[in-house]
């Protein structure tokens, strides 16, 4: 073989072999994955968000998502499931493999604050049953609906003329007092329980009675739930509501309505757990507060409710 032929072969390797090898290797990786491979682009919500916005799988079918971000750090998770979150580092392909057995409609979302519109970065995952149907969500309606609580009315004003606690009441102090508060339901407000206690223990100071209220709520919440609630709060809420609940988070500046200051006792004490929970799962229509009902499991939503409650109480 003469030199010119050798040169020609080398040249073919570069102009044909190199591209063929690159695309072929990528194709082989996809085809040889053994599972269905789906590409998902994670863009800033202002320039497209998830692409595609709707994913469709068969129930129980394992799938590998290959997620790519062209701009900033995002993250991927599927609401009300164990899938994710995984970080999506710009320019680095993130692969996640999973299967979902329960047919239905799910929401996948970004868990990393990526712009003021971060919470808009949600997509729909349809898990199709064996018979080809996609059952409607089997979620039970949130309790605020059956209780008839109007989320947008009154904005959680205290019931009647209740003197709000000056300082956040201490649950520990309430425990020491060893009084017996009435049983608490999710429709009760701290202010309501306080009034009942006032009737039962007329001789006690307001401070003591608020401490008992705090203790009563602490009895209700488990420590592990408070930790879960804190993690969710830190991840999803703190950017607007502020790490300490004052409503002064960095993202609050662009909201149509300023978030509530939860350290303001007068407001929080007038709100029942069902109302707080309802606001979390439904969102605040028009205020910029997103709804989390499609994302949190029941346990998560209640854990977050309990955590938020403790902006008004001390342990």
């Amino acid at each position: 073989m003469n030199g010119e032929r050798v040169a020609f072969v080398i040249l073919c390797l570069i102009f044909v072999g190199l591209p063929a090898a690159a695309f072929g290797y990528q194709h082989a990786r996809t085809a040889g994955a053994g599972v269905r491979v789906v590409d998902l682009e994670a863009r800033l919500p202002g320039v497209g968000g998830w692409e595609p916005e709707v994913l469709r799988l068969k129930a129980g079918e394992p799938v590998r998502l290959r997620i790519h971000s062209p701009d900033v750090l995002h993250s991927f998770a599927i609401g009300r499931t164990e899938v994710g979150p995984v970080d999506v580092v710009p320019g680095q392909l993130t692969e996640i493999e999973f299967s979902i057995d329960e047919p239905g409609t799910y929401t996948f979302y970004c868990t990393r604050w990526c712009s003021t519109d971060h919470w808009r970065m949600r997509g729909t995952l349809e898990v199709v049953a064996a018979d080809g149907s996609i059952p409607l969500s089997s979620m039970e309606p949130a309790p605020y609906i059956s209780l008839g609580i109007e989320l947008d009315e009154g904005r959680g004003q205290p019931e009647g003329q209740v003197p709000a606690p000056a300082l956040a009441p201490s649950a520990a102090r309430g425990a020491e007092l060893a009084l017996s508060p009435p049983p608490i339901s999710i429709a009760d407000t701290p202010a309501g329980i306080f009034q009942q206690l006032r009737v039962s223990y007329p001789g006690r100071s307001d401070g003591d009675l608020w401490a008992v209220v705090a203790h009563a709520w602490q009895q209700k919440a488990r420590a592990s739930e408070l930790v879960l609630g804190e993690n969710l709060y830190s991840r999803d809420c703190a950017a607007c509501h502020g790490l300490d609940g004052r409503g002064d988070g960095i993202m609050a500046r662009d909201l149509p309505e300023e978030p509530r200051d939860w350290t303001d006792a007068e407001r929080l004490m007038g709100a029942s757990d069902a109302l707080l929970h309802g606001k979390i799962v439904r969102g605040g229509m028009g205020t910029g507060m997103p709804g989390w009902g499609d994302i949190y499991t029941d346990a998560e939503a209640w854990a977050l409710t309990d955590f938020v409650r403790f902006f008004g109480f001390r342990p």
Partner: peptide, 30 residues
């Protein structure tokens, strides 16, 4: 040959750079 092979090596890098630029991630640092 030596010069040719070095140039060809650079050409391979050049082809790879063009392919990556056109078909790879739009994130420059990656």
């Amino acid at each position: 040959w030596i010069q040719w092979l070095v140039a060809i090596f650079m050409l391979a890098g050049f082809v790879l750079a063009i392919l990556a630029g056109l078909f790879g991630t739009p994130v420059g640092s990656r």
